[in-house]
Amino acid sequence: MNKTLRLGAAGIAMFAALGMSSVAHADTASADATAEVLDSLVLNNVAALDFGTMVISGGGVVTLAADGTAAGGLTCTDTDIVCSGTTSVAGFTVEGTNNKAVTIVLPTTAIELRHPDYTAATATEHAIVLDTFTASDNGAGGPEVTLDGAGDASFEVGGTITVDGTEAPGVFQGDFEVTVEYS
């Protein structure tokens, strides 16, 4: 699969069909060089999923929506939960093939976030459930994002945490998986 090298195109890996000196020219040369040009796929995490800080005196939910419907995505309306601090939805950028649609896979089951003092016996006060993950391009058929004519796209991911009011103060930790699926 030999092609004329398009200089300056982002995210292209060059294979070794050409000599060292040709690549040294790659920044400026306009002459044709022959190389195997491969499509590449880049995924960057540009923003964290951040619920800020909460003071909890009763049960309720806090939602970070990825669809841009609320400022910072935050919905924190239960009277027993006071939200403060900066919040953000998780942000990702994708670079790849122009005009290609890619599937985004988010967790479909709940994630348990744990307090450093977590033990099975104290799970009520030392665990918070995070679920209902949503992506900004959450079409009827499931999350999918289409790369634009330059091969770029971005998407956001949000979620919902549910508390029962007994949570101990502290930092609750957990991780969640986000995958971009090329077809």
Binding site: L41, L43, N45, A48, L49, D50, F51, G52, T53, M54, V55, I56, S84, G85, A90, F92, L113, P116, D117, I128, L130, V157, I161, V163, E167, A168, P169, G170, V171, F172, Q173, G174, D175, F176, E177, V178, T179, V180, E181, Y182, S183
Partner: peptide
């Protein structure tokens, strides 16, 4: 390890995304 005692009564959440790609 963020086990330093919380001085106030607040709860915060630290989420680590594990992210990646798949290709056929």
């Amino acid at each position: 390890v963020s086990s330093q005692p919380q001085t106030d009564q607040s709860v915060s959440i630290q989420l680590i995304p594990i992210y990646g790609v798949t290709i056929p």
